[in-house]
Amino acid sequence: MAFIRFAERPHFRNPWAEFERIRQGLDELSRTFINEGQQALARATVYPPLNIFEDRDHLIIKAELPGVKAEDLDISLEGDTLTLQGQRKPREDSDKVSYHRREIKSGSFSRAIALPTKVDMDKMTAKLANGILTITLAKAEEVKPRQISITTE
């Protein structure tokens, strides 16, 4: 017969202890996200993976699109949604080739991004160089940080 000695039992059972442990765990989780936001990679689920930066006046969106031609790429801005569409065309090979490795895929893609701030629709530039797409959006005047001068009497 198994018997439990009294001393092995916890001194008292706090019904909230488990909640406290969960809360601490969540705090820990959010802390790592805030502090290591630079290092922590967000997992992209839709092609292409993006990097988004901002500075005082601009919002910069970057994507790696090797092998995509500018004419096969379509960028549109509608309200706060930026849509990136395009396709990577398969290479035209002659019949007499035999593949050793085939890792580069071809196909179409479409990704919509909800912009975090209002942007000036007219000041949008997109550049495709060396397989990297850089979209630069100018923030709308009303969301730009404004310097407030302090007057002293």
Binding site: G37, A44, L50, N51, F53, E54, R56, I60, E64
Partner: peptide
């Protein structure tokens, strides 16, 4: 001078 908002790659 830039702040990273999202980094997926």
């Amino acid at each position: 001078g830039k702040r990273v908002l999202l980094q997926e790659y």
